[in-house]
Design a protein around this nucleic acid. Structure first.
Length: 369
DNA sequence: TAAACGTGGAG
DNA sequence: TCTCCAAGTTT
């Protein structure tokens, strides 16, 4: 099948590339932040940092990274741990599929690579949770491969430096950015260079109010030259969050409450919760009773509304309604959940649980006290 | 391919 | 309070 040659949007000269690479690397050596994962050469620890940093801010990640590494110090330790423990270690970080993929990848690393991470981007790409970015990051930073990477920072920096047009997600734009990143990474210290690009984007070439006066590569920046820094790259269009209302069953027995583990896929996949059923925003008590009865597989009676928790997720406008419920027969399993368990709030605190659910739990436990 | 997937920090 | 978003991947 013939493929038409793609016309490059930009064709930077060797001089232009050189005017960026060396100054940026030198700037990085002088200005890089002292981050804990920059003090290690352990590929596993570096991989962990890259996964945690996906869509997550540095300051949030630091304590998680240190705690997780103590609990699961090697790929082998992680592979051997129960998924439940891994999710508990990820508790509160969000995007929980990352934790499940991390766990699966560790098991692949043990079974396919003898417990040691493979060293090339191409091999890493075959592991769960490794996309193009993470493969390039681990290959270059941990193993010194001249593998490019493009994250949000790099996309912004390169868009400005080379005046790359197009909206985030545009195919041709993405191809151009990866091509530029691939040209720039060739040379000494590819891992440090990749990090310099990201560090520059995070601290200087920021989305809003970039510090162009402090920029080490201002001379080579087409957007700066043309006064287009503020308009490149264009902001991404974001879909309005959809409403999701969940009725939560607060079923008390002795000093325990009923908890359920969600299905592995979808929102809060694999996490524990007060048993939840989706309801209409304006659902009646009868409708809510039916939904919770169906979810638990046994008849329940709604005693009272104990409270409501609202959370804003990126794509969801989440409302949690906590209902005290009772019933003639206490369930121990249900088709709607992977597992049911009666445990005390203290025991529940050690389970993998979303922050949203933790808030709901704190609310009802406070209500009962 | 567009949509789904969490959270807390910053302005 | 509210909007935007931060070192992306998966389906």
């Amino acid at each position: 099948m013939a493929t038409s040659p793609r016309v490059p949007t930009v064709t930077p000269s060797a001089a232009h590339l050189a005017s960026i690479r060396a100054p940026l690397l030198a700037w990085y050596d002088r200005n890089k932040r002292d981050l804990p994962w920059r003090r290690t050469k352990d590929p596993y620890a570096i991989w962990l940092s890259e996964v945690m940093l996906q869509q997550t801010q540095v300051s949030t990640v630091i304590p998680y990274w240190e705690r997780f590494l103590k609990r699961f110090p090697t790929a082998l330790a992680l592979a051997s741990a129960p998924l439940d423990d891994v999710l508990a270690g990820w508790k509160g970080l969000g995007y929980y599929t990352r934790a499940r993929n991390l766990h699966r990848a560790a098991q692949d690393i043990v079974s396919r690579f003898g417990g040691t991470l493979p060293s090339t981007a191409e091999q890493l790409l075959s592991l769960p949770g490794f996309g193009r970015y993470t493969a390039g990051a681990v290959a270059s930073i941990a193993f010194g491969e001249e593998a490019p990477l493009v994250d949000g920072n790099v996309a912004r920096v390169l868009s400005r430096l080379f005046e790359v047009e197009g909206l985030p997600g545009d195919r041709e734009r993405e191809a151009t950015l990866w091509e530029l990143a691939g040209l720039l990474v060739k040379g000494e210290r590819p891992g440090d260079f990749n990090q310099s690009l990201m560090e520059h984007g995070a601290t200087t070439c920021r989305p809003e109010n970039p510090l162009c006066l402090l920029c080490p590569v201002r001379e080579g920046c087409v957007a700066f030259k043309k006064g287009r820094v503020a308009e490149l790259p264009p902001a991404k269009v974001r879909a309005a969050p959809k409403k999701l209302t969940l009725a939560l069953a607060v079923w008390a027995h002795a000093d325990t409450l009923l908890f359920a583990r969600r299905a592995d896929s979808g929102l809060f996949g694999g996490l524990w919760e007060l048993p939840a059923a989706e309801v209409d925003e304006d659902a009646t008590v009868e409708e809510t009773t039916l939904r919770l009865t169906a979810a638990l597989g046994t008849g329940v009676k709604l005693e009272s509304l104990l409270g409501t928790v609202k959370r804003q997720l990126t794509h969801r406008d989440l409302t949690l309604r906590m209902y005290r419920v009772s019933g003639p027969k206490r369930p121990t399993h249900s088709a709607a959940f992977q597992e049911l368990r009666w445990c005390t709030p203290a025991e529940a605190a050690t389970l993998g649980m979303s922050t949203a659910m933790q808030r709901a739990l704190d609310t009802v436990v406070g209500t009962q006290a």
